[in-house]
């Protein structure tokens, strides 16, 4: 990689401004949000722009919220008993939020099914999987107490006659297959005892494009279309 010149820095600063203002299409904002997590210089530039525009926020007039909003929030976040106990994954309103591609909504949707207070859930790790050169975007959550990886497919269709395969990587070790991702907006994949110890915040996940049935070898045979670090929730 060549050293970033002044031209590249100028371009990055403009992208940071465009991200801070939100001028770009949703997919580009999502890619930049991902970059924000891994590129401190870019993150700093975004913060600087947010600071510059911050005085305009005075124009946002406070509006009173109905009390049921806080009640619903507490129920979601802390599992306080509420009237609504519908199966979470069947909750269309939430999936509408998910389709919105909004990270917070994803975090919400993927964390909520745990149905217990977050402080007691240190064994949960999650990753946002994407790559600059691809449209594919998944969110993945692994809950060690159930041994289950839950996936939300947010963007980037599977090409006809192919499949997405999920991999876990630790350090410089070769990728280990977690299996072919079932199609659909959401998917669950059970992890066996061999795989479970690998799903920690020290690892990252990757998705490759493979022929039907998955990679013919024990390594990815097609391009990696998305990847992301596992992080503790």
């Amino acid at each position: 990689m060549t050293e970033p010149g002044p031209a590249q820095e100028g371009e990055d600063d403009l992208l940071a401004a465009e991200y801070a203002l939100g001028l770009l299409p949703g997919s580009e904002l999502a890619a930049l949000a991902r970059r924000l997590e891994i590129d401190p210089a870019f993150a700093k530039a975004v913060l600087a722009w947010e600071e510059r525009f911050a005085p305009m926020a005075e124009g946002y007039l406070p509006q009173d919220l109905p009390p049921n909003v806080k009640a619903a929030l507490d129920r979601h976040l802390f599992g306080v008993a509420g009237p609504q106990k519908a199966g979470f994954w069947a909750n269309l309103a939430l999936w509408r939020g998910l389709a919105a591609g909004a990270t917070a909504a994803l975090v919400l949707a993927l964390v909520l099914p745990l149905q217990r207070p977050l402080p007691q859930a240190p064994s949960t790790v999650m990753a946002s999987l994407s790559a600059e050169a691809s449209e594919v975007h998944y969110m993945a959550v692994y809950d060690a107490s159930t041994g289950m990886v839950r996936l939300a497919h947010l963007a980037g269709a599977v090409p006809e006659g192919q499949v997405f395969q999920l991999w876990v990587l630790q350090g410089d070790d070769a990728p280990v297959s977690l299996g072919v991702i079932p199609t659909g907006a959401t998917a669950r994949m059970a992890m066996d005892d061999r795989l479970r110890p690998m799903l920690t915040s020290q690892s990252h996940l990757a998705i490759s494009l493979e022929p039907l049935g998955g990679s013919p070898t024990d390594q990815p045979s097609g391009p990696v279309v998305a990847l992301g670090d596992l992080q503790e929730v």
Partner: peptide, 18 residues
């Protein structure tokens, strides 16, 4: 407040775009 408003704005914009 800048941080909180940025979280809210970005989230609302993500929803708006979607």
């Amino acid at each position: 407040m800048t941080w909180l408003i940025a979280v809210a704005r970005h989230h609302a914009i993500d929803r708006l775009r979607a």
